[in-house]
Design a binder for these strands. Structure first.
Lengths: 130, 130
DNA sequence: AGTAAATTGTTATAATATAACACTATGTAA
DNA sequence: TTACATAGTGTTATATTATAACAATTTACT
């Protein structure tokens, strides 16, 4: 929880709005929402996003170009991420399954190669949408 | 192999260039490379790409906004995809592991929910790059 | 031939993301 | 406390990725 203190002004503003959002936010949605706080340009947003992703406070949902706060306390760095995405309502949930992360962290390809990092996105219908 | 016959002119042009490429191609790279064949506008490329993804002839590498031909004969539909990506040379390889696909196809989240579709991207360094 | 569905061609524009440069703040080490 | 390195900021411009809208054409099927 010390990490929060290390955020700079812009990073904190961007992180706060993402953390409060029930759904992943897109960069320009964030921009529009923080213009009243003095953040005027896309780059200011993207730079904060890059940093936040780097330190694992948020994750990028690649298939949606959107950002979500990390809800997995064990995930300090954006190294191993898994999400479920509802194809109707677009609800995104971070999956934290010890079994899954163990399986993937230990996965070796045909050449016996192991990977340090992965991102997994599951698609389907959430409870409400089926 | 019948599927190839079903491709339309544009789809075939786009697919051919992707299939021949040793690396994933971006939409505008494709566009520049097919302009001599009469494809002039981004939409012509994106429409073909959409269709090719839909029928599973190609896959989109979400983290790279690039497209690669499917090299997995069993994967007729773009439902279950896994790739390894080298963070230095950007080499992308489609992973076909029966174990992995079985594990993911059967994965259930905390609510017992199963997912019909997934995309997994592993990151690391390829043999040549380490 | 008639018709529905898919595909195409085209122009314009939206949405996502980075380059480049000058400046400011912060930490740290002499 | 000055010097220096590193990271962050503000700004303008631009690059990259992707879709809207509409008319015309092709295709498969009856």
């Amino acid at each position: 929880m010390q990490k929060q203190q290390l955020l700079t002004k812009n990073q904190k503003i961007i992180f706060d709005i993402i953390e409060k959002s029930p759904e992943p936010l897109k960069a320009y949605t964030i921009l529009f929402n923080v213009q009243k706080k003095g953040i005027k340009a896309p780059l200011q947003v993207y730079r904060a996003l890059d940093k936040l992703v780097e330190i694992g406070k948020i994750h990028k949902i690649e298939s949606r170009n959107a950002f979500i706060a990390c809800h997995n306390s064990s995930c300090q760095v954006a190294k191993a991420t898994a999400f479920s995405i509802c194809e109707i309502c677009e609800k995104v949930t971070e999956i934290s399954s010890a079994g899954l992360s163990k399986y993937l962290a230990n996965f070796k390809d045909k050449d016996g190669m192991k990977y340090s990092k992965y991102n997994l996105e599951f698609f389907g219908l959430c409870k409400k949408c089926r």
